[in-house]
């Protein structure tokens, strides 16, 4: 799960920075030749900079190819299309039962203020999200592999009943859908 990878990367990054600080702090009390320290540190810094630069380029490339957002203009693309409108404080979905393994296209807008259209999976974790903004329609395309009940919560603060703005839809297996 992406959240787990991000969590581990964060803990590793913070841990590595903490170790760097602890190393410097442990050696801070004993005096040494300042110019010598600076000379060595500057030599290391050059490599440190290039390592960060190359790492950044690699991570950028890997995370943007393929581009993580769908094209926003053009005809509806997915076999299942649902229109979503956010209101203070409810969601209006044009459908609430979709087939697993088949892309679903959410066309998300708002008729009052900004809302956040976040889809929570059966395990209670976010699977994807977009914003619902008055005057604009965001196109979100998602293929759900896991059947079950999915919950929609509003993640953009929209007023005093914001936390209660929820909806549900169901993802069913293809075989079950064809039987019903």
């Amino acid at each position: 799960m992406l959240q787990d990878q991000v969590w581990l990367a964060t803990l590793a990054g913070i841990g590595a920075i903490a170790l760097g600080f602890l190393y410097a702090i442990a050696r801070a009390r004993s005096p040494g030749d300042g110019q010598q320290v600076q000379k060595r540190a500057y030599a290391v810094r050059r490599w440190w900079f290039f390592a960060l630069l190359l790492g950044g380029i690699g991570a950028t490339w890997a995370s943007l190819d393929p581009f993580p957002l769908p094209l926003q203009y053009g005809p509806d693309e997915a076999p299942q299309v649902v229109r979503v409108v956010g209101h203070q404080w409810s969601w209006q979905l044009s459908g609430n039962r979709f087939t697993a393994g088949v892309p679903v296209e959410f066309l998300v807008t708002s008729d009052d203020v900004n809302h956040g259209f976040a889809i929570y999976g059966p395990d209670g974790r976010i699977v994807t999200q977009t914003q619902a903004m008055p005057g604009y329609t965001n196109r979100l395309i998602r293929t759900f592999s896991q059947p079950g009940r999915y919950r929609v919560l509003c993640l953009a603060y929209c007023g005093v009943a914001h936390h209660g703005m929820a909806a549900e839809f169901e993802i069913v297996a293809a075989e079950e859908r064809s039987r019903s």
Partner: peptide, 9 residues
């Protein structure tokens, strides 16, 4: 960190 390293802070 360079400034404090072996500085006798």
């Amino acid at each position: 960190l360079t400034n404090i390293h072996r500085s006798g802070i």
